[in-house]
Amino acid sequence: MDDFAAWSGLPVTLARRAWKTLAQTGSITGYGALSVPTERVEERSDRLCTPDVRMLPAYDNYLVGCRTRELSVPAAHHRRVWPGGGVIRPTVVADGLTIGTWARRDAGRVVQVDSFAPLSSQVQALVDAEASAVTRFLQPAA
């Protein structure tokens, strides 16, 4: 809720009242940080078996736009994402949670992922596919 208020410029009390009204009218399911538009709940439950894995660039809005970091990056790994000096590293995100960082190597021909913990074979395969897509995108035309 604090992120929404800060981002929107609304006073926190007004933002909370608006969010509560949306929940009461059935427009959203849940309340606060875990809210989901009602029409997307069934869509999301169909996809729960396959994690959504994304590689975000440095300074992505997902990591810049929040006042708190607890929902996006595990506290134990904050320094790996925000090492200091205003730097925000590129990240690997699975279902909204940062699971590692990534960097370009070998003149951009290789994407190296540094995961925070060992990944399941399913998530590793999705990370590899995403890294391949990023590599293709970043390659200059021959």
Rank of each mutant, 00 (worst) to 15 (best):
H77Q: 12
R79G: 15
S72P: 00
R105C: 12
P74A: 02
D2F: 04
E43C: 09
C49W: 05
D60S: 06
R79Q: 12
T91K: 01
D3I: 04
R69C: 11
D114S: 14
T101S: 01
R40Y: 15
S121L: 01
A15C: 13
P51V: 03
P37N: 12
W7H: 12
D60I: 01
A103N: 04
A18M: 13
H78F: 14
R105L: 11
V36M: 12
R16K: 15
S8D: 11
L22D: 11
V73A: 01
L63A: 00
V73P: 01
D114G: 04
Y31Q: 11
R80T: 09
D60A: 07
A33F: 05
A131D: 01
A76M: 01
T50V: 15
A23S: 15
A141R: 07
P74E: 09
G30Q: 12
W102C: 07
R17A: 13
R47F: 10
E130N: 00
P118A: 02
W7I: 05
H78M: 05
L14C: 04
L14A: 13
G26L: 09
P57G: 05
R67A: 13
S35D: 07
R79P: 06
R80S: 11
P83S: 10
S121G: 00
G9A: 08
V36I: 15
A18H: 09
R17D: 04
G30R: 11
D46L: 14
A117G: 00
L14Y: 03
Q124F: 03
L10Q: 07
R16T: 06
G65N: 11
A15V: 04
D3S: 14
A75P: 03
V81R: 02
G85P: 09
V127P: 10
S121Q: 03
S72E: 12
I99C: 05
A103W: 00
T135V: 13
D2C: 02
P57W: 05
D106R: 15
A33W: 06
A141G: 05
Q122V: 11
A129R: 15
S132M: 09
Q139I: 00
V92P: 02
N61E: 12
L63Q: 05
T21E: 11
D128H: 04
G84N: 13
A58M: 02
A129E: 15
P51T: 05
G108S: 08
A76R: 04
R104W: 04
T38W: 04
R17K: 10
V81L: 10
C49V: 08
P140E: 11
V73T: 06
Y59R: 02
F137A: 13
V36S: 03
V41E: 13
V41N: 10
G108A: 06
T25M: 09
R89V: 12
R104C: 03
R17T: 10
R17L: 04
P11D: 14
L48V: 12
R40N: 14
G30I: 08
T135P: 00
L48W: 14
L71S: 11
R17I: 00
V127S: 10
A129W: 09
S45W: 15
P118R: 01
S72N: 08
V93W: 00
C49E: 12
A107S: 14
